[in-house]
Design a protein around this nucleic acid. Structure first.
Lengths: 156, 156
DNA sequence: CTCCTAAATTAGCCTAACCTAACAAAGTTA
DNA sequence: TAACTTTGTTAGGTTAGGCTAATTTAGGAG
């Protein structure tokens, strides 16, 4: 969805997240984060640097370029959005939410993304009020039965 | 999510859908459906037949085995579920729903799948009542503003 | 029945993305 | 500073999944 491959997006996202934590980014950190070997990281970094997304002096630290960081942040936000949706709306375990987000983040169209964002915003906006929809939905999930309509508005 | 690759799932699903329409399945149909060339289909079919998922006599028609059909139907159902969710819950255009489903169907964990099914069932179960949640959510999507709480129950 | 065309197959090639093993550079410690 | 350890790089190989071009088969038309 960015013109970059799944693997490229994964590398950019990992670089971004490591940057947020550590002062500098080393090949080894990336390898660890993505569960690949160091030579794979070296190859990926070279390819990304040819595309102007990262910079690295030999045997030195890796940095995202401005463009690279832009793409990385975009991937990261898709990831966060999916996580939020899975956890906060569907009520899934955070670990499951995380794992599914990792795989799906690469396949989200702008339209679907926008709607998911809306639904998360909607649910959050009325969180304090013990959102009626969520209560009813979770009851449906747990009992398999449709809850009684709200006595006030007779709507579901 | 089935132990088969994205590409393998795509072939199985295509074979299944062609089977539903046509009497027999030919290499050419599959190539057309998946937008690949015939030699790619031949290679894929050979590989799938080695795994016991399809059968084909040389220069003959392609058929899913029982196991192959089981897997194919599973992929197909994931696809349908995602479509339904995108269209019926998120209110997305059917074309967008279809496209996103195609890409995401390969990455759905059983847990997430179950919850998505629930939410679609939930929304369907109260469709006749002009589902309050959907009305409110769509109003939020369109206006960007949170609708007033229901006067009866004061819940969102 | 023969010939022609369309479909299927084979052979051989390419790219992306990974790997291992061997080597090189950097950094740490005695 | 010399030696050792850790980190990074290079070289070369593998697999999945696609492609084109050339060949073979099957099925329909004359």
């Amino acid at each position: 969805m960015t013109g970059y491959s799944q693997s490229e997006e994964d590398y950019l996202e990992a670089l971004y997240m490591i940057q947020l934590k550590n002062k500098v980014t080393r090949v080894k950190d990336v390898a660890l984060a993505l569960d690949v070997k160091m030579p794979s990281v070296v190859a990926a970094v070279r390819s990304l640097s040819e595309k102007g997304l990262v910079e690295q002096e030999k045997y030195g630290h890796i940095e995202l370029t401005e463009e690279g960081e832009k793409v990385a942040r975009d991937v990261y936000k898709r990831h966060q959005l999916l996580c939020a949706f899975f956890h906060e709306v569907l009520g899934l375990d955070p670990r499951i939410a995380e794992e599914d987000a990792c795989r799906m983040e690469h396949h989200l169209s702008p339209e679907t993304r926008e709607r998911l964002l809306r639904i998360v915003e909607y649910i959050r906006a009325c969180k304090d009020e013990e959102v009626f929809f969520l209560k009813r939905f979770m009851s449906f999930v747990n009992t398999g039965k449709m809850p009684e309509p709200c006595p006030g508005c007779k709507r579901y």
